[in-house]
Design a protein around this nucleic acid. Structure first.
Lengths: 253, 253
DNA sequence: ATATAATGCTTGCTCCTGAAAGACAAAAGT
DNA sequence: ACTTTTGTCTTTCAGGAGCAAGCATTATAT
């Protein structure tokens, strides 16, 4: 592999992941860490990135793609952790819904090595992530592509309602409160998720701790509608009680 | 093999793979590395590529996306030219179908700067390419994701048939013959394209010269069904006559 | 047949990569 | 707060792969 190829790969990885480590790059590219460091050195000089201990991060304020990612990328570590936990609840033979959220995108990465599963999604990013996996049956709802990189609109909703059923659903939202339930700020996404909920047996709500207690304007579902809530740390006691009361199982590990 | 042939091969390979090495080229072309280096030198002067140690990579800004997924595309230069011509037939206000082919993917890149157009496609790669364009209304058919990075299956066909209509359609196929018409090797893609054809007013068939005379097993449409055939160079006279006979307008520039 | 261009070959040189050793920084234990 | 430990970084060097240049050879054209 040629040096510029490698460097391009590094920039790609950086844009995709938000950060890269020397050791991981060395492993994925099959060269020594010294070579990676030299590449990073060059790229830093060319203003392509900023080096850090152990790896590199993007230059501040670069590609809009990144800023878009970054905007959504609050609480990334928590989301990755939740995604990992959620993925461990997917087994061979499952048919699952994934909505269009950052957390389910991370989850898709974790699912890549599973075999004999069917994934139905309205997320362009999940599709792109899983489309190369031969052993995963991947189904997309159609519809209008939103700014959110997802398919929305009446066609999407209708196709879910009429054509797709899953035994598990994994989704996220803007917020959740113990009084109101699960809240969303985007009506279109809300419609999609409601249709998915209606057609799935077992519902997993992926909710990083920042979102607990946060209220948004549209109600997506009530707590009683879901079966599991996966989050990154144990919420306050009142919230835990509310979950127990609504028969929602809390998963934090 | 003549020098210009070799150089065309090199550019093709470059576009296909994202990078080329001197040693591999020398082997595939059956010449020494010196000859390859001289070719690369010329091509670099002509701004066709950038040389590096051990090989060459594309000029910055071109086909960056290709390095991500290796494709088996052939005749890349011709396809890009055809894509460019095709894009010049799209105007503000149009609603167009794009199928899932390499040529329409290149075409999508050319469409990025247009405003007020609606694109309906079953190609994941076209979607990914255009999803960041705020000023393009982008619609996806749903369905099963095929190995071809496209949506296929009955759901796709039904959603096209029932929900989508366009004033122009741009598509490609595996081959075309003056006796039989337009041929496809993939039944699923074939079904999608036929449904798109049925729901569009003006049909543009994008056909690089390699495909003329090539026969495949499934008939997609007859020549009389299309309105325009866009290709990279004027075909042989018999084929041109056949087009004229079927009232198909030939576009080569 | 001769001139011109293209290709192949050889030589010395350059650049890239990987390995090793020491410097440095961050994290953890005392 | 200090030291230890661990991991990362820089520097240096050597081997090897790739390269430019000049010349010999072959192909092509006039």
């Amino acid at each position: 592999m040629l040096a510029p190829e490698r460097q391009k790969f590094i920039l790609d990885e950086l844009a995709k992941e938000g950060a890269v480590t020397v050791s991981r790059l060395a492993q994925s590219l099959g060269v020594t860490e010294e070579t990676i460091r030299r590449d990073l050195e060059k790229l830093e000089k060319a203003e392509g990135l900023r080096r850090t201990h152990g790896g590199a991060v993007p230059i501040e304020g670069t590609s809009y793609e990144l800023s878009l990612e970054k905007r959504k990328a609050t609480n990334v570590e928590a989301k990755k952790k939740i995604a990992e936990i959620a993925a461990s609840y997917v087994f061979s033979g499952d048919t699952i819904f994934l909505d269009a959220s950052t957390t389910t995108f991370f989850m898709a990465k974790e699912l890549k090595n599973l075999k004999n599963i069917t994934v139905i999604t309205n997320s362009l990013r999940v599709l792109a992530e899983l489309s190369s996996c031969e052993h995963i049956k991947l189904i997309s709802v159609g519809g209008i592509v939103s700014a959110n990189q997802s398919f929305v609109g009446s066609l999407s909703e209708r196709s879910i309602k009429e054509s797709f059923f899953a035994n598990k659903m994994f989704f996220s939202s803007k917020g959740v409160s113990k009084e109101i339930g699960i809240l969303e700020s985007n009506e279109q996404e809300c419609g999609i998720k409601q249709n998915m909920l209606a057609n799935s047996e077992c519902k997993f709500f992926l909710c990083d701790s920042d979102k607990i207690g946060r209220v948004s304007f549209a109600k997506l579902a009530s707590l009683a509608d879901i079966d599991y809530l996966i989050t990154d740390k144990v919420p306050d006691e009142e919230f835990v009680m509310a979950l127990k009361d609504k028969n929602v199982q809390l998963i934090t590990e």
